[in-house]
Design a binder for these strands. Structure first.
Lengths: 110, 110
DNA sequence: CGTGTAAGGAATTCTGACACG
DNA sequence: CGTGTAAGGAATTCTGACACG
């Protein structure tokens, strides 16, 4: 996946009606999940909401959880937890990589 | 790039207003290029045009050529030529690959 | 040929609110 | 709490057409 492809997935260009079609959620529901901080659309110059494919996936995830009876507050907590553990993970990987590099180069370049 | 990422790039979800912002072309121009067969948006259930990121790129390409004074008929020809040569290319690659596989397996599996 | 624009109508989106539960 | 809905207004989109060049 190139940098450009990433930007496609995260580019906020989809209007709420299309997101509704894509996710099966009502426009009302999508707006409500924003109110509950579960999703962050971008606003166009005239105030209409714009979503990315990533947002659409997130909304489908939310829809599944709601179907299981999970409340939005719970979903929010879970998502924050998941993001945090992802961050920790990345930090750990970084540290390990640095360690390896250090070990490798410790007695070189001097 | 996974299959999913490909579908993002080709998924027709962007309305003409956003495409206009993204490309710098007027809505009128975008519709006209469709009339000239340079671009094929999808239609939503209520008849509004929907574009993909691929379409957006194609439109930027068209915009550049138009700036150089190339007429739409010319652009259409060039694009068809390019698509054809791409197809030929892929066929050639396929043939060569088949040839290699044949050479490799000719005296095996029997 | 390529693009702007006014025209009229239909559909979208927005917000704040009331309803139900 | 989560979602539907009616309300009023603003902005979008569509098509066919006239204009200019």
């Amino acid at each position: 996946m190139t940098v450009e492809d990433l930007s496609y997935k995260d580019k906020k260009v989809i209007s709420i009606g299309i997101v509704s079609e894509l996710t099966g959620l009502s426009v009302r529901q999508i707006r409500y999940y924003e109110e509950r901080k579960l999703i962050y659309p971008q606003r166009s110059s005239r105030g209409t909401r714009k979503y990315s494919f990533t947002d659409v996936e997130r909304l489908m995830d939310i829809a599944n959880k709601r179907e299981d009876g999970v409340q939005t507050a719970e979903i929010l907590k879970d998502m924050r937890k998941k993001e945090q553990s992802l961050k920790n993970d990345q930090q750990l990987r970084k540290k390990m990589l640095e360690g390896q590099l250090n070990a490798h180069f410790k007695y070189r370049n001097r």
